[in-house]
Design a protein around this nucleic acid. Structure first.
Lengths: 167, 167
DNA sequence: CGGTATCCCATTTGATACTG
DNA sequence: CAGTATCAAATGGGATACCG
């Protein structure tokens, strides 16, 4: 498979990567979530080259993640704002932030610079991933992925038989 | 900033991207979370070129996300298994999966092929992001990011004054 | 301020073939 | 099975300058 066709694959992770998987994209979104809306702010805070930023912003607008507004009342200001679709990427951001906080700050260093606060209850804490039904926290081993369209999952013996037949 | 230095930046999102931000990496991890452990399985399921896969696997091992085992009892089998650090990337995966499910399947198409089931309670549902303190679901607008090392958050009036002083 | 236009260089990719 | 080796081609990046 070429990378170009990764967006047409039958998998939501692959499709998502086709949209936000490019190097700088999540950093642009980080800025957007931090409230930044302007071209030059993005450019300075990220340190990305201007032409590349322009390309990425165009792509994000095309993909419906950012919306471009021109506030033509004054100096031809342009703003990029997160759409609902863009806002919905927040869990991806937070998950990355949390993992980085947990694993990428060697003991010698000062520690992650950002602290999240829940506006609702005031708690200073990272959001957690839980089962929406029982509320228990979930990790990799707590969830099972099954094929949605399969009548029922195949048993090991059947899979083996199928493998033999294929040869 | 060159992309090469993105891992040394003072931001967990940037550092995380330096580790897992490469095109194919999350697809390799998708396979790993699905239980795949072998070179050729990765290669076939993802459709990645063999030399690239080899490079990525080496990087993931170096970064402590996968561990390489050689089961030398038989045919020199090699296995790549997720470490704890790797398992901890599950929320990133799920967040991408969930977003892709929600936004990247046009009405005409059949729908996402995967269904998650919580082993603990049997619920067929995607995990949700909640505040660990009050349990409420959180989205982008529910959380506030503050500087951890600041004495206290600056007020709007102070920020404005600072801005003026800088000019 | 919010971009384009250029131009060049570095990196990544991918196909294919080969090996122990 | 689990890679390496090779090499050509594509893409992406970055610096810089320019424009309305």
């Amino acid at each position: 498979m070429r990378w170009r066709s990764v967006g047409e694959v039958n998998c939501s992770v692959a499709r998502t990567l086709a949209v936000i998987g490019e190097r700088w994209t999540m950093l642009i979104l980080r800025e957007a979530f931090m409230g930044r809306r302007r071209f030059d702010d993005f450019q300075r805070n990220i340190g990305i080259a201007r032409n590349i930023l322009a390309t990425r912003l165009r792509a994000l607008v095309k993909d419906g993640i950012l919306e471009r507004f021109r506030a033509d009342d004054e100096h031809a200001r342009v703003e990029y704002r997160l759409t609902k679709k863009g806002m919905d990427l927040y869990p991806v951001m937070v998950a990355m932030l949390k993992w980085g906080d947990a694993w990428l700050w060697p003991a010698g260093e000062k520690g992650p610079p950002l602290q999240l606060v829940h506006r609702g209850c005031g708690a200073k804490a990272m959001p957690a991933l839980v089962c929406p039904n029982c509320g228990d926290p979930v990790g990799a081993r707590d969830m099972l992925a099954v094929a949605r369209h399969a009548a029922r999952p195949a048993r090991r013996s059947e899979r083996l038989a199928r493998g033999k037949a294929a040869r």
